[in-house]
């Protein structure tokens, strides 16, 4: 589904952050990317979503769904979203003056239009929204509030998962979705993500700690350091990182 080859990237006109990342995510898989602060994890997530602050200087990202292979870097951010890529933000953005309901419907219908599917009118969309709110055990009062304005950390993260549930992406990239969450919120968010898993979609989780991985079990774990993947393994790698920290892996990628 997602094939990244030798990816090099930097902040626009800035210093290099990613120095040759290669990885492949197949449909049905859950991958975790772990690493210390500043290793480039979040940069990778934002580049996949098309954030304009970053510049790819070398390498490729290919994205394939329904046997259609596309060069992801050729697509605008909204086209990537419409093609089924979803980034759950580490810091979801406040959008004063736009209600969640208006935002979610505009988003859902934009994706429908792009995929050539019929749009939903407000009443039908409301039904869909209610179903997803119930699934995530969220208060329906959420939807009339402006997007993320005065939301607690936990509410913001749950709101990200609500958006994900509405858009039903093929590839979900969760950028530190566990940060700032208490255990109860973490469980709720993880449950939400798990319910959305199917054999045809995939998840890429960016995290600093192992604790999220207890609730969402990855098939593959990568450890990133200084812009390179220094080790790839199964869940036991995450447990080892939890036990030993990152120090023993640092510098390994240069070898």
């Amino acid at each position: 589904m997602l094939t990244i080859k030798n990816l090099h990237a930097r902040v626009v006109e800035g210093t290099p952050i990613l120095k040759g990342i290669s990885l492949e995510v197949k449909a049905g898989e859950v991958h975790a990317i772990m690493g210390p602060n500043g290793s480039g994890k979040s940069t990778l997530a934002r580049i996949i979503a098309g954030h304009p602050d970053y510049q790819v200087t070398d390498g490729t990202i290919e994205y394939e769904v329904n046997r259609r292979r596309q060069n992801l870097l050729d697509l605008e951010p909204h086209e990537r979203a419409c093609a089924g890529i979803f980034l759950a933000f580490q810091y979801p953005v406040d959008v004063p003056g736009v209600s969640n309901a208006v935002f979610l419907r505009a988003s859902f219908n934009a994706v429908c239009r792009y995929q050539g599917l019929p749009e939903l009118d407000p009443l039908d969309f409301d039904d869909l929204l209610k179903e997803k709110l119930a699934m995530l055990d969220m208060n329906p009062a959420y939807v009339d509030r402006p997007v993320n304005v005065d939301f607690s950390g936990g509410e913001k993260k749950r709101n990200e998962i609500l958006q994900m549930a509405i858009l039903n992406p093929r590839l979900a990239v969760l950028d530190e979705t566990d940060s700032g969450l208490d255990v109860d919120s973490l469980k709720l968010v993880a449950e939400g993500v798990n319910r959305l898993r199917t054999p045809t979609n995939a998840t890429l989780m960016i995290t600093h700690y192992e604790r999220l991985l207890k609730y969402i079990r990855p098939d593959v774990v990568h450890v990133l350091d200084a812009g390179r993947i220094v080790r790839t393994g199964d869940y036991s790698l995450a447990e080892e990182v939890e036990r030993r920290g990152y120090d023993w892996l640092q510098g390994a990628g240069a070898a």
């Binding site: 098309g50 605008e76 951010p77 990537r80 979801p92 959008v95 003056g97 505009a106 958006q163």
Partner: peptide, 22 residues
């Protein structure tokens, strides 16, 4: 905010219009 809306499938000019109206 523009990128946030774009990342949810809303094209840039539509995102700018939505934020301006807001």
């Amino acid at each position: 905010q523009v990128f946030y809306l774009q990342s949810r499938g809303i094209a840039k000019d539509a995102a700018v219009a939505m934020l301006s109206r807001a």
